[in-house]
């Protein structure tokens, strides 16, 4: 029987069968990985583009980024503070969940998207302090409705920037100043230290 099976594989049709099986397995894997990269379903389809479009600064809602690790999500009172003054709040079906949550004193369960694994300690403050704008990492949010990561937030991506910022090159050290070279080296030691993020 085994021989028959092997023989069948030697036929052209058999080979095509093998090919199809491999293709199915491969595309299932690709599809599965792709599923994990899709933006999740949020309780409210929050349109970032609209809010950024009317000129609200990122830090108005995500103010924690200035002070500490987590930028935080705005409290319901903050959402409601603006929205209760707008007519659209009472009419738009998209805003129903917000109205309901405020009325019932219930929290809104957002699903975090820009997220690093639990074994990574990411602190926003020094990144803002280093002069990075939000869109450097989070992309052009004014073009997004529900937020979506512009790139995979993995270690290589973090490290690439940490290395680039500390490289002793024309951009970072135009005058070839030995003092800057030394400072860059110290900074590089610090910025590529495992303990910077993992503890």
């Amino acid at each position: 029987m085994i021989k028959k099976f092997f023989d069948a594989l030697n036929q052209p049709l058999g080979r095509i069968g093998v090919l199809i099986t491999l293709l199915v397995v491969f595309s299932a894997a690709v599809w599965g990985i792709a599923q994990t990269q899709k933006p999740p379903e949020q309780p409210i389809q929050f349109p970032h583009n609209l809010h950024v479009g009317v000129g609200i600064q990122c830090l108005y809602c995500h103010s924690g980024a200035l002070r500490g690790a987590s930028p935080g999500l705005p409290t319901e009172t903050k959402c409601w503070g603006c929205h209760q003054q707008m007519a659209i709040t009472n009419t738009s079906p998209l805003l129903k969940p917000l109205v309901q949550a405020v009325e019932n004193n219930q929290p809104i369960n957002w699903i975090p998207v820009a997220q690093v694994p639990d074994f990574v300690r990411f602190v926003h403050r020094p990144h803002i302090a280093a002069g990075l704008n939000c869109e450097v990492c989070h992309g052009n949010v004014s073009q997004m409705t529900v937020y979506q990561n512009p790139q995979v937030l993995n270690m290589g991506w973090c490290l690439a920037c940490h290395r680039a910022k500390t490289e002793d090159n024309i951009q970072n050290n135009p005058g070839r100043d030995p003092a800057i070279t030394a400072a860059l080296a110290t900074k590089r030691t610090k910025l590529t230290d495992c303990s910077l993020c993992h503890y």
């Binding site: 995500h62 103010s63 002070r67 999500l73 409290t75 809104i108 369960n109 957002w110 699903i111």
Partner: peptide, 17 residues
């Protein structure tokens, strides 16, 4: 996981602190 922010945050509290 989901994250539920404060409904009304105490005024002396900062996110992440």
């Amino acid at each position: 996981v989901t994250r539920a922010p404060y409904i009304k945050m105490p005024e002396y509290t900062y996110n992440g602190l």
